[in-house]
């Protein structure tokens, strides 16, 4: 259940090499090296302020929106360095979807939320949009709950439904990778459970990187786990190994609850 088996045979999606990141003069990420592989769930854990959120936001360059951020090092996405000048940010972000900590649907209808991506990228055909909406909502396990009220405001949904709507919204542009930044931290246990089940289904078709503050969640859903501490990647290996026989003393301290 935990591992997908023989992960090394899969292709490498992300290859992070010597990544450093500064907020002004504060270094938030120090010499990160890690590989994210196809159709796996990679969990990123660590105490708050360890840089795990910053790291995942670097993978689709959302950190670029913060003016004081500087980076060095390379992140290869399917062999292309995403910091390369020839890489179009918009294009990168259409192949790498992102789900945020707090559900953030737009103040529009459920339907408009799902087809937002396809629409801004030039798909106008109503029939096509409807097909995309149905498919994405089905993939996000939300279709049955909302199919009769697609044109209601998205803010009428519960928190868990809103988060699944945000996942559907990301799926609508058919990305290869889904980045999730603590997607269940604002949700109750039942809603969290549904999202976790959904992640388990989605990993058949997508590569997923998920930041989580819950070690149990990481243990339940991920194939690989990366442990961050104070901007450094302390340990990265199979989830099973991390949670049974960690190599680093600090990893052990963290997962046994001695700090953080």
């Amino acid at each position: 259940m935990l591992t997908n088996g023989g992960s090394s045979q899969n292709g490498v999606v992300y290859d992070v090499k010597g990544l450093n990141l500064w907020y002004g003069n504060d270094q938030a990420l120090k010499d990160i090296n890690l590989k994210i592989e196809e159709n796996e769930v990679t969990a990123i854990i660590g105490p708050s302020g360890c840089g795990k959120s910053t790291f995942i936001k670097t993978l689709n360059r959302m950190v670029d929106n913060i003016p004081i951020v500087r980076t060095s090092g390379k992140i290869f996405y399917h062999g292309v360095n995403i910091f390369d000048k020839t890489v179009k940010l918009e294009e990168l972000r259409t192949t790498v979807g992102m789900v945020f900590q707090k559900p953030n649907p737009f103040p529009k209808s459920i339907f408009e939320n799902v087809v937002y991506g396809p629409k801004i990228h030039g798909i106008r055909n109503k029939k096509q949009l409807m097909e995309i909406a149905e498919e994405s909502l089905k993939s996000a396990a939300l279709w049955d709950e909302v199919k009769d009220r697609l044109h209601d405001n998205a803010y009428g949904l519960s928190g868990g439904q809103q988060q699944r709507l945000c996942i559907a919204r990301s799926l609508a542009i058919q990305p290869d990778v889904l980045l999730m930044d603590e997607p269940t931290s604002a949700l109750d246990p039942i809603a969290t459970n549904r999202i976790e089940e959904l992640i388990d289904e989605l990993k058949n078709n997508y590569t997923i990187a998920i930041v989580t503050h819950s070690m149990q969640q990481a243990a339940r859903i991920s194939d690989k786990t990366a442990f961050f501490l104070m901007g450094e990647l302390i340990e990265f290996s199979d989830t099973k190994k991390i949670f049974t026989t960690p190599e680093d003393k600090r990893t052990e301290d963290y997962i046994t609850g001695r700090f953080g």
């Binding site: 179009k88 918009e90 294009e91 259409t94 396809p118 990228h121 798909i123 498919e135 542009i173 058919q174």
Partner: peptide, 11 residues
Amino acid sequence: VNVRDIIKKNI
């Protein structure tokens, strides 16, 4: 619908 290809072309 192959959204991926359409988007790629449009972008």
